[in-house]
Simulated assay, not measured.
Amino acid sequence: MKIDTREIAEIAATQPTVPRVDLYAGIHKALRAFMTDTLLGLGRMDVEDDLDFAQGCQRVAQLLDVLQAHLEHENRFVHPAIEARAQGGSLAVADEHEGHERAILRLVRAVADLMACARADRAPRAQALYHALALFVAHNFEHMHLEETAHNAALWQHYTDDELMAVHGALVSSIPPGEMMLVMRWMVPFMAPAERVALLGEMRQQAPAEAFGAVLDVVRPHLTAREWDKLMAGLGMAAAAAR
């Protein structure tokens, strides 16, 4: 993909003049952050340090689990919504999802092979996994752009914001607590401040106090002091009391 100023302007033109419910914005920020951080961590992993090696491999495996779950969520909730009112609108992305599932399976096997290989084989196998993961991440970035443009256009044309919130609510309700907490760890720190306040403000109203507090505990180490203070101010919470 080659990006020039004209293409950037065209991308900007696809954004609604009045903000709409965006099913992709938050989770895609989380996935971009998680993929990038994991790829960079794999690149600097010390294959001679057993703990660092094990943690690096486990991080890749964890990422692949999240990406597989994300595909399943979109296949189960978002694609049927598109097909219900714009038949054929999700077919191109659905085909890419099938390719991603096969790629994830290959990467899962590569991680298992790396963890089981002889110490002398770790370095070349880790490098091969790094290159394979880099290509997978690159394709995912292009894939997410397609969803954020073509799919959002279809959703915004055929659904009201209330209807999109219903789709989003059903999807979120299907996510197990452990997966949700991991998603929050990668989503909230990499949102813009206003997005953080909106997301956590809604969660504060709807979720049990213990669950909301657990999310704050998970994300706080990954926010700067200034970001944390802005979040507390936006939520109307005393920063000192929340620390």
Results as ranks from 00 to 15, higher is better:
L71V: 08
L129I: 01
L146T: 13
S174P: 06
Q15Y: 06
L129S: 08
L114R: 02
A86S: 12
K2V: 15
A128Y: 05
R6G: 08
G43C: 05
L64R: 01
V167I: 15
R20D: 02
M1V: 01
A9P: 01
G26P: 03
I11G: 07
G178T: 14
P221Q: 07
L216N: 10
R226W: 10
L129W: 13
Q55P: 08
V172L: 15
E7K: 11
L199F: 13
L171W: 15
E148A: 12
Q55T: 15
H143R: 07
T160N: 02
A33G: 00
V167N: 01
L135C: 15
E48P: 00
M191Q: 09
F212S: 11
Q68L: 15
L146E: 15
V219I: 08
P16Q: 06
A225Q: 09
M35Q: 12
M1K: 03
M237G: 00
R59N: 12
Q87L: 07
E195D: 09
F77Q: 02
R44F: 01
M187A: 04
T14G: 12
H222Y: 13
R122L: 01
D217F: 12
P189R: 08
A116E: 07
Q55G: 06
V215W: 10
A13W: 14
E101Q: 14
P80L: 00
A33C: 06
A86P: 05
L23Q: 06
A128C: 15
A240E: 15
H70I: 01
E227H: 02
V111P: 05
A69P: 04
D121R: 15
E227C: 01
A30F: 05
F190W: 05
E148F: 03
D229G: 15
I11L: 11
A198V: 08
A120W: 04
E148S: 13
